[in-house]
Amino acid sequence: MSELTLTLLRLAFLVGLWLFVLFTVLALRRDLRAPREARPARLDLSGPEPERVRQPKPVKAPKQPKKSKNTVGTALLVEEGPLAGTVILLGTEQVTIGRAPDSTLIADDDYVSSRHARIYPSEGVWMVEDLGSTNGTWLDRSRITSPAVLNPGVPVRIGRTVVKLQA
């Protein structure tokens, strides 16, 4: 092997190593643009409704819930409390919040009951319901006593945890 070939090989390995780092970092950048890893990649319409809700886009303030047949809101964002920063992608199933280990969101907090509240989809909107908790579930400023419509951007306070629905 000539000296030149070896020098080229030597540089090729370094370039290869840096290309690997570069690929990784470029791919990582996508995470920075959608920081919470919360954006669904695509929307599979398996149900009968053909229309689709345009995804994320900045919050367009609480909309009339009955506008569309599809459920408004794509993710629950934990804004305060021990799990602040967590995002739960919403699908078609309910989200339970409580201290019980099988809850979707396990709030490790003395002010939260075992099964505190649930957030579930109903006729195109997300509803929040208190499950008989000790300290109550607060929608904006008022304690809820019956299932209430959860609009995007309205804070739900459960113990020290505050969650918000993302549009």
Binding site: P40, L43, R52, T71, L89, G91, T92, Q94, Y120
Partner: peptide, 21 residues
């Protein structure tokens, strides 16, 4: 409970898994 309430799954979300990457 969901089916009892008459809720039909309409939208299914898929998270990018990025396994090919």
């Amino acid at each position: 409970t969901m089916t009892e309430r008459g809720f039909r799954p309409a939208v299914r979300f898929t998270q990018p898994t990025r396994r090919w990457l």
